[in-house]
Amino acid sequence: MSTIRGYLKKHTEALVKDVGIEPACELTGKSKATLGRYYSDHDEHADRFMPIDAVAALEEAASYPHVTAALAELKGISLSFDGTRRNADDKGGVNADVIALSQRFAILMAEYQQSIEDGVITVNEAKRLLRETTQLQQVLIDMKLHLEDEAT
């Protein structure tokens, strides 16, 4: 399977799991088996991807636009979105973002240290690192939005 296909399938899986399998079935009108095929890495499902309307419905319910972000990253584009997030409405602005940024970075480094102790990063460890990296990215987006607000 090509790198791009695998990358998109992993992000499709992250999207479905973010929403939850049962709610994802309800939102898309697809069965669990069908949703599973969209992110399966088996050769028989290599060319099967989730329809864009299903992606849009799931991303509306998800905490992060996993597939849209993956497509943007593949094209070298960075996105910012303004959905309600943990520190989007706080009154601390950039100062609170700097604190959140340093906390998230510390968590990421702790996860990394724990992951490389045995010299091998397992799939589960990589998923935890990816989750923390995504959280760090969301804090940076919040910070960017606060800075843009202050600049206007």
Rank of each mutant, 00 (worst) to 15 (best):
D97A: 11
E125C: 04
K127H: 08
S40C: 03
Q103L: 13
E59A: 02
N124T: 08
V19Y: 04
G29D: 11
I116K: 07
R5C: 05
G93N: 05
L58M: 10
T68F: 03
A33D: 09
A72R: 01
A151N: 04
L136V: 00
K75W: 04
H66I: 01
E111G: 09
Y7W: 13
K91A: 15
I121A: 04
H146F: 05
D18I: 00
K32E: 15
C25I: 14
I52E: 15
G6A: 05
K127Q: 06
E132V: 03
K10V: 03
Q137A: 10
I52V: 15
T133Y: 07
R48E: 08
V19G: 02
A54Y: 01
R85D: 09
A88H: 09
A126F: 05
Q135A: 05
G29S: 14
S63G: 15
R86E: 14
Y38P: 01
L8E: 02
L145G: 02
K32H: 14
A54W: 04
D97C: 15
H146A: 08
L147H: 00
S115K: 11
K75S: 14
T84A: 09
E132Y: 04
T68M: 08
G119Y: 04
E44M: 12
H11K: 02
R131K: 12
F81H: 11
V120C: 07
T34F: 09
K30S: 14
S115V: 06
D90S: 14
T122D: 05
